[in-house]
Simulated scan of single mutants.
Amino acid sequence: MASKENQNLQIVVIVLAILVFILAGVAFWLNGKKTTAMARADDANTKASEAGRSEREMQAQANNYKVWIGYQEADTYDTLQESFAGDMEKYGKYFEEENRSYRNILENIFEENRLLGQNEVTAKAQVKDLTARLLSLEKEKEAQIAKHIEDKDAAIAQKESLRNDFQQQREAMIEENRKIADQLEEQRTRIDELTAACADTEKTLNQEIEKLKRMLVVLKDNQAVPDPYAQPADGEIRLVDQRQGKVWINLGTLDQ
């Protein structure tokens, strides 16, 4: 009886030991599954955390991109797309389709502004040079104007001097002409007087000549007929003065 109970006890112990081993194995297996599940859960949590962090970083980057190109962080993709289409139509209208981007447009605008800046610098340098040349020309013009005014004043002074000299010479000439006119008038009066005297003398002489001619006619009429045998006259009667009773006879070459 006692041995049978011992056998039953041994069987129970063996069964219990087997159950313990089975339970231990099941517990170990469950613990492994739990560990694996926990590891997977931790990995999933880690991946989810990484994904969330990456998503947050990507969202932060997207928000930065929005801010960088001039939009608000709260703007949606549709808003950005609509605004981008409007900007490309406004600013990138003349760009190729593959070059329609904010960077290309900004680079193009920057290059144009750079060229404009260079042109502005060049234009300012040219303006500065032209201003300096203009100031030089203004100074030269002022000097020329001053020289012209000086020459003009000198010419006016010379003109006044020449006018005064001319006026003095003219007055002297007028005075000289007046004197000459007075002398001419005096000479004319003298000539008129001499002409009148000559006319009177000529008239008197003509009267004397006429008288002498008449006397010659009378003398010729009173002369006797020449004797052809008579001696020739010694001379020719040239003048008869009845007042003094004188006769002038031209004897020719023998009248010495």
Rank of each mutant, 00 (worst) to 15 (best):
Q167G: 02
R238N: 10
N99E: 00
K124F: 14
I209G: 00
K128E: 15
Q144W: 09
A154Q: 01
V121D: 07
I18N: 11
F84I: 12
T131Q: 12
A181P: 06
I249M: 02
E111F: 09
I14L: 15
N31K: 12
R133W: 10
D227A: 11
W248A: 13
E73G: 01
E236Y: 07
D153K: 11
R188V: 09
S54G: 03
I105D: 03
R188N: 01
I14D: 09
V20F: 13
M215T: 10
T35A: 10
G92W: 06
S3N: 14
W29C: 03
D75V: 07
L194G: 00
A51I: 10
I156N: 08
S54A: 12
Q256W: 13
D255H: 09
A41T: 05
T195K: 00
E140K: 07
E236V: 08
N8H: 13
E140P: 03
R178S: 08
S83I: 04
K220Q: 07
T76S: 13
K211N: 03
E160T: 08
K47D: 13
T253A: 10
S49C: 02
G32F: 13
N45I: 15
A24D: 05
N45V: 14
M215H: 05
Q7L: 11
C198T: 03
G25W: 14
I11G: 13
R238K: 12
A233K: 09
K66I: 12
E73R: 02
N164T: 12
I105L: 05
H148W: 12
Q169V: 14
I14W: 14
N6W: 12
E120D: 15
K4Q: 15
I191E: 10
E175G: 00
L212A: 06
S101N: 08
K139S: 10
I69K: 05
V13M: 05
A24W: 06
L137A: 14
A51Y: 11
D221H: 10
A199N: 04
T76N: 11
Q242W: 03
E5C: 10
G32H: 13
S54I: 00
P228I: 00
N119V: 00
D78Y: 07
N104C: 02
K34S: 15
A39E: 13
A224W: 02
D43P: 05
Q231I: 06
R114G: 07
Q244I: 12
D234M: 03
L19Q: 07
V13A: 04
S49Q: 14
H148E: 15
P232W: 06
Q244D: 10
E175A: 01
I237Y: 08
L239D: 08
S83L: 07
Q61F: 06
E73A: 02
E82P: 01
A48S: 09
E186N: 05
N45A: 15
K90T: 04
E142Q: 12
E107F: 06
R190S: 00
N6C: 03
N31M: 15
Y91R: 04
V247Q: 04
N113I: 05
L115M: 00
A233D: 08
T131I: 09
N113M: 09
G235H: 04
Y229K: 04
V12H: 08
L23A: 15
